[in-house]
Each structure stands twice: as structure tokens, then as C-alpha cells.
Design a protein around this nucleic acid. Structure first.
Length: 495
RNA sequence: GAGCCGCUAGCUCAGCUGGUAGAGCACCUGACUUUUAAUCAGGUGGUCGUGGGUUCGACCCCCGCGCGGCUCACCA
């Protein structure tokens, strides 16, 4: 067993033992009243050398030692707490001999220590703590990754995210921005008088989207349940109940393929606004996302891969069919029949098409194929064919299309919104059709009779929107893969 | 699910047409009291993802398996 562990681990285990023998607890759990490094830097980063020569500023703090530069009778090291680091300097003669010995003989890079000392500026003018007292709080047994290259191995970064976060500041920044993004959105919605709610994740009848669900089971009730694929149907029940503006930021689960853009569990924002239309939501989303970009990145111009994304409002708005003319350069007469669409799609080897597909379905497929990848700047696409939108309200003037938009950025779908269908009889018809196709595909579905009943109770005119939080964070952090913005993406267990 | 690529020291990576495994960092020993990837000298550390095969000989060639990445498919 001992042969398996590396030499660093061996050495540190010995130090651990010796510390215990000396009566020093290497996992000291006593309360340490510490100042945060962030606060120290905020308070004193503007003070110059003379200030510290004339004022003795004593600070006590703690954190992980991330690097040590040893000079025999003195050492520099960097202490990190959260997102901030400060340089420290320990010198023989300044600290007690026992503290100096503790530091040089027993403390390693990676250990968590407390220090007390006073601030000064080095000859390169760096704000530094001259240590007067120190102690170990947590002995780290495993070595840190390489100090210059960090941890690169993608698999290890995902499996041992804690090491990734210690080693890679970019990773820390991504998840900080993720938290700030969610915070901003929450504040934005709260300021708009939205009520944050939580709806069931385990559902007996998963609805609101068309993906395959994960199965689970409740033992005591002997009840098969599914992990939700969307919160939509519950949120609208709440609008029926009088919560005119509700939102939920939460996890959805879809039992589908994994890709650079798909993780089996992912975070969605869904919000519903009564007495509003999808057009109102376009304005609302435009304001939210442009302000979000400014808040997180300090600019409307976001670099993403080789693209520049311009979040300056207003965002481009285009009807689905017009985008085929304008973006994909089709002439109206080229795409005016199902047959022509079918021929174009099959010539491009688009699979899963059938001659029985409706004009609207084929139009949407052609859009996915020819237009979506080209929508780089934020673009709202409207006037979706009714076939592709079972929960959306038909347009009053043109019943072929629904009152819906999708938002595309960087060639991918970021948001989906529509004026909600609130006619219970129309909804029932569409559910029936949906159930039939799902059963054909072998998917677990039942009519959601209670949802129909809710609509019979009366859903006010309402518009709702879903936005993929992970995908937004990808854009704002220039992350290529969704796994870079999910702390613990799903991986197969190692055997 | 298919194709391609990767897996070598704790970390980052070399390793040629097959000849028996290397560097830098980390670690250990020594020197060094203002460094910034500190520096200098010496040293420890490997079941080369895994199981088979070919061969006098395999990190290298062949087959299976595992995990990961990318592309496609599935899927919003």
C-alpha cells in the first residue's frame, strides 16, 4: 500500500506525525478570528512605503500557501484566501525560533496556515505581510500541480475540480462570473416584481418539453417518478394561482446525448409575466442580457472564440421565414413548397426528414441548418410555424405561426419565449397530438389533465421565457464547452 | 451509437524506422536574510491506462477493453 503513494505524500505524512508528536495539531480546529485578505488589500493597497514606515499596521489572516520561495534564513510565500492573495515574508529573528522552525521544517506549499504580522512594502514595492507569528491550521498531504503550467488534463480538472480551482485562476474566475450572472439575473427579476419560486423536480408526469427524462422511484409510495425536463407547467399553474410574475432558476434533467453544448443536468431560468406578450418579453430580455453583459464584462462587445458579439441594444429581430431570405439567401420562390424544402434538405443530407413533414416543420429544419449557425450577434427570431410550438399561442393575424421568439447568440439557441396558450380546449387538442407522437417514439407520457384543468380555471394572458444559464455563462466567460462552466459535469465513474 | 485523437514520474511534457525511460517543475540534501516561474550544486521518484498477441527484444507494431477529448448522429 505504501508503495502506491508518491514521495511527496510520504514526506508530508512523516511531517504530520512529527507535528503530532510535538503536540501541534496539524488539523487545528480552533476558531481563528481572521481578517480577509481582500479587506487587507482594499484598505492598504493605496498606501505607500512611507505610510508603513510611520504606521505599524498589524494584521492577522489565514489561507492556503500557494507558493514558497525559500532563502535559508528568510522566505517569501503567497497566502490565498478565496479569490485574493497576499505576499508574506518570514525572517529568522523576527519570528520566534520555534515559529521559524515550524515554517521551514514542517510547512509546505499547499498547507493552510494562519499568520500575524505587519504590513510593509518590499523593494519592488509589493504589499507584503512581515510575519511575526504563524501556525498550521490544515496540513496538506498531496502536492500542488505544477506552479507554472497548472493543471491541464481536462479529465482531472473535471473529476478533481477542487484541484483545478486551486491551480487555475481562470477556472476560479469562470465560476465567480457564473455566480455573479445568476445574482444579477435574480436581482433584475426581483426588481421587476417577480416572485422566485421552487417547483417539483421529481414529477410523476414530466412535461413542458420534448426530451427523454431520467427515471427515479419513491420507495414508500412505490411510485415511479421522473426528473423534470422543464418547470414550465408548474410555473404557469402559479400564474393561474395569482402569482402574476414568477420565476425559477433551477436544474433541468434531460436524458439525451452529451456534447459541448449539452450536459444531462443544466440550469435554466424560466420566468412568466402575466398581462404581457412575447413582444414585451423581447424588450425585457434585451434589457436584461445587455445589462448583464455590461455588468459581467464591462462592455457590450464580447469576444467569443473567433467571434465578436455585440450586446448593444436593440438586438436584431427577424421573422423566421425572412431570415431564410436574408441570412441564407434563398429566393422566395425557392422555398415556397414542402417539396422544394424537402429537396433542399435531403440534398444537404439532413437526416430525420420525411416527405410527410409539414411545410412549417421543414421550414424550421431549414432554418436550423442554414440560418442558426450564422446568427452571431444576439438575434430574436419570430413567427415560428405552429407545428413546432405546442404550448405557444397562435398569432391572431396569421394562424400559421405562433407568438413566439427564440434568441440566438453565437450561432446557438440561448432563449425561447412565447405568449402562452391559455385556451384549455386548444391546449387539450395539442397535448393529445403530442402524446400520440411521443408514444410512437416510446416515450413515457400521459395527458396532463390537471394542467388543462388549471387552464380552465383561467390563465391570464401571459408570456413566458426560458433562458439557458449555462450557455449564457459560456458566452460571458468565452468558454468553448458547457463543462467548463459546470463545476462537476457528468463523467463516467473510473473503474 | 460511429469515426478520429489522447492516456509516459505528483504536475507539464519529450521519447526517431522496435534495442529495455528522459527533461522542467514539485520533493529531499546542501548554499543563500527583499524574492516574483528566485538562483546554484547534488539526489529520490515509473507495472509507460489496462488485458492479450507478434518479436530474440514492445512506451513504440497488432487486437480487445477502460476513461477522456473532438467531430457527426441522437437531442433543443
Amino acid at each position: 500500500m505504501e508503495q502506491d503513494i508518491n514521495i511527496v505524500e510520504k514526506g508530508r505524512t512523516i511531517k504530520l506525525k512529527k507535528l503530532k508528536e510535538k503536540g501541534i495539531n496539524p488539523f487545528d480546529n480552533n476558531f481563528i478570528k481572521k481578517e480577509n485578505i481582500k479587506d487587507i488589500i482594499e484598505k492598504y493597497s493605496s498606501k505607500d512605503r512611507e505610510f508603513f514606515e510611520n504606521n505599524i499596521i498589524t494584521v492577522k489572516t489565514a489561507g492556503r500557501i500557494v507558493i514558497i520561495r525559500n532563502f535559508g534564513k528568510a522566505s517569501f510565500f503567497r497566502l490565498r484566501d478565496g479569490f485574493e492573495e497576499i505576499q508574506c515574508y518570514i525572517q529568522k529573528g523576527v519570528v520566534k525560533d520555534s515559529d521559524f522552525e515550524l515554517f521551514t521544517e514542517f510547512i509546505d506549499a499547499g498547507d493552510i496556515c494562519w499568520i500575524e504580522g505587519h504590513l510593509f512594502r518590499t523593494k519592488t514595492n509589493e504589499l507584503t505581510i512581515k510575519v511575526e507569528r504563524t501556525g498550521v491550521l490544515t496540513k496538506s498531504i498531496l502536492p500542488l500541480p505544477e506552479k507554472w503550467h497548472g493543471l491541464k488534463d481536462i479529465e482531472v480538472r473535471f473529476r478533481k475540480r477542487y484541484v483545478d480551482l486551486i491551480a487555475n485562476s481562470e477556472a476560479r474566475e469562470i465560476f465567480k462570473k457564473r455566480a455573479q450572472t445568476i445574482n444579477f439575473i435574480r436581482s433584475f427579476l426581483n426588481a421587476g416584481e417577480f416572485l422566485e419560486v421552487e417547483t417539483p423536480i421529481m414529477q410523476a408526469n414530466p412535461g413542458g418539453a420534448t426530451a427523454r427524462p431520467f427515471k427515479t422511484h419513491h420507495n414508500a409510495l412505490n411510485l415511479n417518478l421522473y426528473m423534470r425536463i422543464a418547470p414550465e407547467l408548474f410555473l404557469k399553474r402559479l400564474v393561474v394561482g395569482g402569482f402574476d410574475r414568477v420565476y425559477e432558476i433551477g436544474r433541468n434533467f434531460r436524458n439525451e446525448g452529451i456534447s459541448v453544448k449539452h450536459n444531462p443536468e443544466f440550469t435554466m431560468l424560466e420566468f412568466y409575466m402575466a398581462y404581457a406578450t412575447y413582444e414585451d418579453l423581447m424588450n425585457f430580455v434585451e434589457k436584461m442580457l445587455s445589462e448583464l453583459a455590461m455588468h459581467i464584462c464591462g462592455t457590450f462587445q464580447i469576444n467569443y472564440a473567433s467571434d465578436k458579439l455585440d450586446f448593444t441594444p436593440p438586438f436584431k429581430r427577424i421573422k423566421l421565414k425572412d431570415s431564410l431570405y436574408e441570412v441564407a439567401r434563398f429566393k422566395p420562390e425557392d422555398i415556397d413548397s414542402s417539396l422544394k424544402l424537402y429537396d433542399i434538405l435531403s440534398a444537404r443530407n439532413v437526416s430525420n426528414i420525411s416527405k410527410n413533414d409539414s411545410y412549417g416543420e421543414l421550414l424550421t429544419l431549414l432554418f436550423d441548418e442554414m440560418v442558426e449557425p450564422k446568427l452571431i450577434n444576439p438575434t430574436f427570431v419570430t413567427d415560428y410555424p405552429v407545428e413546432s410550438s405546442p404550448l405557444a399561442r397562435r398569432n391572431d393575424k396569421n394562424p400559421e405561426v405562433v407568438d413566439r421568439f427564440e434568441l440566438f447568440i453565437a450561432g446557438r439557441e440561448i432563449g425561447n419565449a412565447f405568449s402562452e396558450l391559455n385556451d384549455p380546449f386548444d391546449q387539450e387538442e395539442r397535448f393529445k397530438a403530442q402524446v400520440e407522437t411521443k408514444i410512437k417514439e416510446g416515450l413515457p407520457v400521459e395527458m396532463d389533465d390537471d394542467y388543462i384543468e388549471a387552464l380552465k380555471q383561467g390563465l391570464p394572458p401571459t408570456a413566458g421565457c426560458g433562458i439557458g444559464i449555462d450557455r449564457i455563462v459560456m458566452l460571458l466567460t468565452n468558454s468553448y464547452s458547457i463543462r467548463d462552466v459546470i463545476l462537476f459535469p457528468l463523467l463516467k465513474p473510473v473503474k
